[in-house]
Computed example of a mutant assay.
Amino acid sequence: MTTRIAAAAAFALGLTFAAGTAGAFELEGAGLTVGVTPTVSSDYLFRGVSQTRNRPAVQGTIDIQHTTGLYVGAFASNVAFLGTNARQEIDALAGWRTTFAGVSLDVGGIAYTYPGYEHGLGAYDLQYFELAAKASYEIPNLPVPVKVLGAFNWSPNYQLESGDGFYVEGGVEIGLPYDLTLGSRAGYQWIQNNARWGSPDFANWNVTLSYKFSDFVLTAGYYDTNLNKRECFGGQKICDARAMVFLSRTF
């Protein structure tokens, strides 16, 4: 399946279903596992910053993985950036997943695109590419499941043509009784050309609680950054602390 077809399928699924955790099915004889993750949420935050100007988002993800660990995928969402005509984001993903000494590893790349977006004379491009590495490890012999996570992303020319961009993130997930999961993440974004990007380097963090019932998962969370209004992309309110809700359906 080509990236273009995968992205279109993800977007269509995002418009059709309300979900956030996908089931997966196998294509017999091909060695492929296909996962689909449609999502609805009260906002679309990327590293703590709203991509929809504090409005709801409808999203979809498709993930196709071979038994070798190689995978391709796509993500789609509505977006709304002040002063642009960008209305949708479609990302293409590819990489390799494996497990070594109990550590789950994922290395690959992500291309962030905004179909239909037109940047006028003197404007900078929204589209960019990142190399990404993620790792997770479930700590053994604890009374409850505890997983620690880490991630590192690097772009040679970050969004708005702002030069090198580096992002690091760490987190934890704790399995609780009654099908509850408590999670937390903290990350930091460095940008080479802050004036062009629109904010200083910044930190973000969140705490979430998820509840699985029947075929659904309901997640509520608190999200924040260390950017004040003056520092936030020309005085916007897209970096403020906020509560968010996600509704998920597994199928």
Rank of each mutant, 00 (worst) to 15 (best):
F100S: 15
I110W: 01
G170E: 09
L131D: 01
V148C: 11
S155F: 09
F166H: 13
T98D: 14
I90N: 04
T181F: 10
A76R: 01
G116E: 10
Y137R: 08
A74V: 07
A86P: 02
Y117R: 07
V146P: 01
A135Y: 02
E169Q: 14
L176V: 02
T98N: 12
A151D: 13
T98K: 09
F152Y: 14
W154D: 01
F81I: 04
I139M: 09
D164G: 13
S184G: 12
A132D: 01
Q127N: 06
P156A: 06
D91W: 11
T98I: 10
L105P: 12
P145V: 00
N85I: 05
Y124G: 01
L180D: 11
E130N: 10
Q189C: 10
A92P: 07
F166S: 06
A92M: 14
I110E: 04
V79L: 05
L176E: 03
E118L: 15
E173Y: 01
I139L: 15
E138G: 12
L93D: 12
A80F: 00
E118W: 12
G102K: 11
E173A: 15
E89H: 08
Y158W: 07
I174A: 14
E118I: 12
V144C: 06
E138V: 12
G163D: 06
A111S: 09
F75H: 06
I174N: 09
D179K: 13
Y128T: 10
L131I: 08
F75I: 04
V148K: 03
E130L: 06
Y128L: 01
N85Q: 03
G163A: 13
R185E: 10
A135R: 03
A133G: 06
E118M: 11
W154M: 02
W154R: 05
Y178A: 12
E89K: 04
S136F: 06
Y137M: 04
L160C: 05
